[in-house]
Simulated scan of single mutants.
Amino acid sequence: MCGCGHDGAPQHVIATALRIDDVDAAIEGGLLDADAACPGCSADCTTMIEAARSERLDALAARERYRAREARLQRRAQERAARRTAPAAVPGTPAGPAAQPALPPAAAAALARAKARAAALKP
């Protein structure tokens, strides 16, 4: 105890838990909820509680930011995977993975000529 004479104050439960490095007990004692300091406590006692509260709140906020980032990255990865597996829709052609877009007539003719020449060159 800090010797202020207010032994039943919640801040003393928190301060005692923090002194023995039991953060869980301090949180259960109201570390994150306590706003008012014990009026008789020393500045060191109050500063210790405020610093621990600030550290815990910062850690909780960081954890929430991390979880939100992980969820965002997971959603983006799923969207990319869906775009990769989805076939590109070409107007006038049937949809589906087996449907391939047709070549323009000039390109199809050039490809046919090239295949014919390649077939003629093979022994």
Rank of each mutant, 00 (worst) to 15 (best):
E55S: 02
T16I: 12
V13L: 13
R75F: 02
I20V: 15
G30D: 01
D22M: 09
A34N: 11
A43I: 09
A25K: 13
A15Q: 03
A52Y: 00
R72A: 10
A25W: 01
E70Q: 12
A17V: 15
A62G: 02
L31Q: 09
E70A: 10
R72W: 06
D44W: 04
R67N: 04
I14Y: 01
L57I: 02
R63K: 07
R56K: 11
R75T: 11
D22L: 10
A34D: 03
L31G: 02
A59F: 02
D21F: 05
R53P: 00
A25R: 15
I14S: 03
A43S: 04
L18S: 01
R19F: 01
G5V: 06
A52G: 00
M48D: 03
D22H: 08
V13F: 06
I49A: 05
C4T: 15
A59S: 05
C45Q: 03
E55N: 04
D22I: 11
T16L: 07
Q78L: 11
V23E: 12
A26I: 10
S54R: 10
G29Q: 13
A68M: 04
A26N: 13
G5R: 15
R75G: 01
V13A: 08
A61Y: 05
R53V: 02
C4N: 08
S54N: 02
D21T: 14
R67C: 04
A43N: 06
A25N: 10
M48F: 03
T46S: 09
R53W: 04
A34I: 15
R53Q: 14
G5M: 13
C4E: 01
D24G: 07
D33Y: 04
A43D: 06
E50Q: 05
